[in-house]
Design a protein around this nucleic acid. Structure first.
Lengths: 344, 344
DNA sequence: TTGTACGCGTTATCAT
DNA sequence: ATGATAACGCGTACAA
């Protein structure tokens, strides 16, 4: 193992004090250009790399924004991340992406990161927010929840968030299907235990049915049973749709909880020798690329990803700069009609 | 701003020395259970969180494995990441995912991370490896390159890697198309400047044509021109295929550099009122979920993602544990025939 | 079992 | 312009 060279080594090599080396590294003004170049030279030669832990320990601030993302598997987030990156770098801040496991406590992780990295702000991307106020109060830097579910336990007016109204948008979609004349609309839903957007979208579905005077039929609602399966996977849509059709229940439309799931649903239908939208109308949610590129294109709810990501960063920085105390924004989504739905 | 509580605060509160608190935190054996519970109690109450920077600075080792991923946008990686996570956690190590920008130097980042986090090992996922030996020698911990391109500058026998033979597999696919009777096979390729898997797959394509006595036709090779566009995006396949067809060049098959691109290609064809595989046979690469779930399913080269990921971790740990010096493994991929190709 | 004191690598303050 | 030194928060010999 190669001994790691430290600032002391460089100082010794150059015959100067550590403080001088530090000045050279950090572009301090009061240093002789000659000694500086000499030091930088030695640094290059000996492959010296400052120890970041020591720096963070010592530094008062770091200008980094952390984005905590729950379940990087959700392809929906990818688009947001790009915007985050760009906008954060544009502000000369450092972008730190950190994934948190499904079973991990995101606030706990944030607390750690805040200390370790001297964060300036935090974005919680996705996930479900149901943490006690006490715990959230421990976060000393501004944070914002982006495109995730928020528990009713939490007083929304106290925190910052950017999201769509999953209940309303889900309602919008199912209402649209009903208005097309569909009376038997199935839903490919999240696990029954889901307390987040999964539940909201389910409730939007139920309410839309109710308002259209269609009785609720449990046999039309399919939940994710197999906990090992990914809720945002095509496989889930595929498997459950095969079951649904095989079970012989009568339905003319299916609403999937996400576009990926809808893709799996479509495939299952094709495999059974049925057609879309002739035999079944299919609807998704999110407005991801695949909803457009699938054949047929899939009717979906398009979330304004770009705008939402930009607004997330804007609000966060307004908080950091003390312009506002907090900010919440619910975006309007858009019903994009594709080739996968038809009227009855 | 709330003052962050430190180990000293806890010590003062409990009326003990910092070392005692430290012992309590780190589960040291020689500590009175009573004092320990008392300390843990105080820690809970005051929301004390150890400063990780200080810990890392002090600690000799950390048992964490970093996975550096270049361009998180490539959906192909998602599947590997899951395996990495599982296997690394299974070994009681910490999994650290770190994304590196397209224009960043991954080894540079690794060097920093190694110091900061006291890494035990590093996985470079994707990207293209063309770093000088001198730089690579600076890495003091074992590392392995997984599913990325390796420059010819680099002496493969000196390093560890897990990959497929992109040249061979690409050849396999194009040869298959030729054997089906296709004489005019287009390729949706990477940017011309690509030195990585993009070039390898292109060369496999060219060689297959040659061996099948089909003359090379530049008008059939489409490169990614717009640098702002993502090489692994459906949009790329879509746009370039529209151009290709509009240009009126004669071809009966198209080979896309990845499955995502192939999806875009299919969509463009459908939009032009053509059929697959009747009018065009389409082939992809990678074997991602969508190649199966698309309609029609897309003929592709399936990389054994799971196995490759598992082998990556296995080799890395064998190096960490000193069982081996280095290990390289080239996996065989599989030609999966879908509904998107037909014989002529 | 517990406390004292030092050092990890760096930056910042104060002299010089 | 440069050097000496304290401090950041923690872990750990070593002493008690």
């Amino acid at each position: 193992m190669m001994e790691t060279t430290t600032i002391k080594d460089i100082a010794r090599i150059c015959g100067v004090a550590v403080s001088t080396v530090s000045r050279a590294i950090n572009n301090h003004p009061d240093i002789n250009p000659e000694t500086k170049t000499q030091i930088m030279q030695a640094i290059k030669e000996h492959n010296y790399i400052p120890n970041n832990s020591a720096r963070n320990l010592k530094r008062s601030e770091s200008n980094t924004i952390a984005v905590l993302i729950k379940g990087i598997t959700n392809p929906f987030f990818n688009n947001m991340l790009k915007v985050f990156e760009q906008d954060i770098q544009k502000k000369k801040y450092t972008f730190l992406l950190h994934r948190v496991e499904e079973n991990e406590d995101e606030v706990e992780v944030a607390l750690l990161l805040e200390k370790e990295k001297r964060l300036k702000g935090i974005v919680f991307l996705g996930g479900y927010f149901c943490h006690s106020e006490e715990k959230l109060r421990q976060l000393t830097v501004p944070f914002i929840l982006s495109t995730g579910g928020i528990s009713e336990i939490i007083d929304k007016s106290k925190y910052s968030f950017v999201m769509v109204d999953d209940f309303k948008e889900s309602y919008r979609m199912v209402d649209y299907l009903c208005k097309l004349g569909h009376k038997r609309v199935a839903m490919i839903a999240a696990p029954p235990c889901d307390e987040s957007i999964g539940r909201l979208r389910l409730e939007g579905y139920l309410k839309a049915l109710e308002d259209n005077h269609i009785p609720r039929d449990e046999s039309l609602i399919r939940y994710l049973q197999d906990e090992t399966m990914d809720i945002f996977s095509m496989k889930y849509g595929y498997e459950v749709t095969k079951q649904l059709i095989a079970s012989g229940v009568d339905c003319t439309a299916m609403f999937a909880i996400s576009d990926s799931v809808a893709v799996g649903t479509c495939k299952a239908i094709f495999e059974m020798g049925k057609q879309i939208p002739k035999d079944y109308s299919i609807a998704g949610f999110d407005g991801m690329d695949i909803s457009f590129y699938y054949h047929p294109s899939i009717t979906t709810i398009r979330q304004p990803v770009q705008d939402m990501a930009k607004e997330t960063i804007k609000i966060l920085f307004d908080m950091i700069n003390g312009k506002i105390e907090r900010g919440g924004r619910t975006f309007e989504a858009e019903l994009v009609v594709g080739q996968s739905t038809r009227d009855m």
